[in-house]
Design a protein around this nucleic acid. Structure first.
Length: 616
DNA sequence: CTGGGGTCCT
DNA sequence: AGGACCC
């Protein structure tokens, strides 16, 4: 059993190196390269002169799935009238993602709202994506759907690795070898370029040399085992993408290779709504010209360190020894150095590891300026704490656990001046009574401690999180665990109204919640026939799509609304209007403006957000 | 005018 | 508790 908190790299090297070590020994004996000193086995494994073109662990077949411009797709599902229009999803001043119509106009991910509106002055429709609830919901459904193809590892809300090796073995044993690869196959000798404008990990298929990528190439009679395995993998990926589309209305791109690194990289070659396969023999040339930034775990800082020793591309990296990398780049972490070194040949020994339930649950909001304890407390009480408790209630229903630790993280204007990303965090025991007053008070106590005597301050960011979960013990005597009483107080609903002091709420059985899992009908049909049970249109409309919120009615009986409606009606994101009235003028204005612009945006007057920004 | 989340390591 | 990294 894999320890959840264990580092995948360490695990990979600790548990899976048998084949690699055998390969290392084999190569070490045949290599013409002189072995030097105490260099690790990795140094001998892939000498620059003799890059390996086969991987002994290549029985693996890994599919990487990436939901195309995910937030924008979900917005289109919530509001089908958006289809065909350029759509941008905003968080504060940023367009965090946009659909492909918007990209045609030159809008990119993480572009400033102002700039986006300049690029696309008339037709751009903006939607607020600050509330991640609908995205979480779709993401979980996608993950649930993918489970049947093999173990799934999620990366963020929109990316999944699926280990389909067992399924491939099954189909090969049954003699099911397709006549063609589905989608594209990276041709021999193809090199690619990284998208250096934004994320070097994002590759484009503007092949600068070598053969172009083939579409649906045949699987010959004399195909190698790897070709047959990956051909089956490409069929599985196509099926998975088809089901995401048909059952959830989500388009995805996929990469199919022998490991996570390569699958993710080739998956970006044909986007959106398409897939790419690559044989390991082509990984050598494929990775050679890529910037080291393409390797997972190499961020801005590590990239700079690599540059300082003259390493820009994977080819440069191959020429270094693990000892050098360990000394100059990874602060003596040899395992990590080895990992980077292997990756420079397209070899990634890490496995697909399902991550299990989240280890932290947190909510945050950022502000231009939130001054003083009073305003801070009101935001906590009316927005952040109720939101966190709502999330924790769902979490408890799904995982029968409660948090042990409460953490408050914040940033003030003063910290921002020094270092933009600087944050301060403090934790304490999570209050036993999981209600808004208790948790808010605990947050405030932490803030006072963190701020010391500082009486005048301006928050620019507030985050509260729950972590270190422990098994939740239902009250004894309850014969039906699914209706046992939770420690959540009933007045902790999003609108912050105190309904019934001390009254407790019944837990719901999330195992039957269709917003989190495929319906039984869907699962049955999928499992038995592999047929598509229902067209996406009948299922993915806002009215027929149950949101998580619809299962948490307010105890006062106010019916919850579909996601789209909820998000406009309760904006201010659950702010109680009476509490809002007590807030400082500028804070009131900020929330009212946000409320107004979102409401108008939901009503189809997307341009209204302009007035919000124009005023500021 | 740089989101709102997450993971893991030190 | 903070930092680097991921989306």
């Amino acid at each position: 059993m894999d320890g959840v908190g264990e580092d995948y790299r360490r695990r990979a090297f600790a548990e899976e190196p048998v084949e690699l070590r055998r390969a290392a020994n084999e190569l070490a004996t045949t290599s013409t390269t002189t072995l030097q000193g105490e260099a690790g086995w990795c140094d001998r494994l892939y000498p620059l002169q003799e890059p390996r073109t086969k991987q002994d662990v290549s029985k693996a077949v890994v599919v990487h799935l990436d939901l195309d411009c995910f937030y924008a797709q979900v917005e289109e599902l919530l509001d089908p009238s958006l289809k065909g229009k350029p759509v941008g999803v905003t968080q504060k001043y940023l367009v965090v993602t946009c659909n492909y119509e918007a990209r045609k106009a030159g809008i990119t991910k993480l572009m400033n709202v102002k700039e986006a509106m300049r690029k696309c002055p008339s037709s751009l429709v903006l939607r607020s994506g600050e509330d991640l609830t609908p995205y979480r919901s779709y993401s979980r459904k996608a993950e649930a759907l993918l489970q049947k193809f093999g173990p799934v590892e999620r990366l963020g809300l929109d990316e999944f690795f699926v280990d389909v090796q067992a399924l491939v073995d099954e189909r090969l044993a049954a003699g099911e070898v397709p006549q063609h690869f589905r989608g594209h196959l990276v041709g021999s000798g193809t090199s690619v370029r990284a998208d250096t404008r934004f994320r070097p990990q994002d590759l484009r298929s503007g092949a600068s040399s070598g053969t172009l990528l083939d579409l649906n190439p045949p699987v010959g009679a004399e195909a190698t085992e790897e070709e047959r395995r990956l051909a089956v993998g490409s069929v599985i990926a196509a099926t998975a993408r088809g089901e995401l589309q048909q059952l959830l209305g989500l388009r995805a791109s996929a990469g199919i290779t022998v490991n996570k690194l390569l699958s993710k990289l080739v998956g970006g070659l044909h986007k959106p709504d398409d897939q790419t396969t690559m044989l390991f023999k082509d990984a050598d040339l494929f990775t050679a010209t890529l910037p080291v930034r393409c390797i997972k775990g190499v961020g801005a800082l590590t990239e700079q360190k690599f540059k300082s020793i003259g390493v820009h591309t994977c080819l440069d990296l191959r020429a270094k020894t693990v000892a050098e990398i360990s000394k100059s780049v990874t602060k003596g972490n040899q395992e990590l150095a080895k990992f980077f070194h292997l990756c420079s040949w397209g070899i990634d020994p890490s496995r697909v590891v399902p991550k299990g339930p989240p280890k932290t649950v947190s909510v945050e909001d950022s502000f231009k300026s939130l001054e003083g304890y009073e305003a801070t407390m009101k935001v906590l009480k009316s927005v952040l704490v109720p939101d966190l408790l709502t999330r924790l209630r769902e979490d408890c229903d799904q995982h029968q656990r409660r948090p042990v630790t409460l953490t408050v993280t914040y940033r003030t204007m003063r910290m921002r001046e020094k270092k933009h990303f600087a944050r301060k965090s403090l934790s304490c025991a999570f209050p036993r009574a999981m209600d808004t007053p208790e948790v808010s008070e605990a947050c405030l106590a932490l803030l006072r401690k963190g701020l010391g005597g500082e009486a005048v301050f301006a928050m620019t960011l507030l985050n509260i999180g729950a972590s270190r979960f422990t098994d939740f013990k239902p009250e004894t005597g309850s014969r039906r665990p699914t209706t046992s009483v939770a420690t959540f107080k009933a007045f902790d609903v999003r609108d912050g109204r105190r309904i019934a002091d001390g009254l407790t709420m019944k837990r719901r059985n999330y195992g039957k919640n269709p917003s989190l899992l495929l319906s039984k009908q869907q699962t049955r049909t999928l499992a038995s026939t592999g047929e598509i049970p229902e067209p996406a249109e009948s299922r993915a409309t806002p009215s027929s799509l149950p949101s998580i919120q619809s299962h948490f009615r307010s105890p006062g009986g106010r019916p919850s609304q579909p996601a789209a409606g909820r998000r406009s009606a309760e904006v201010g994101l659950g702010i109680d209007m009476e509490i809002l009235k007590e807030m400082p003028e500028d804070v009131q204005r900020e929330y009212r403006n946000a409320l107004g612009s979102r409401k108008r945006a939901r009503e189809g007057q997307g341009g209204s957000i302009r007035t919000f920004f124009a005023k500021k």
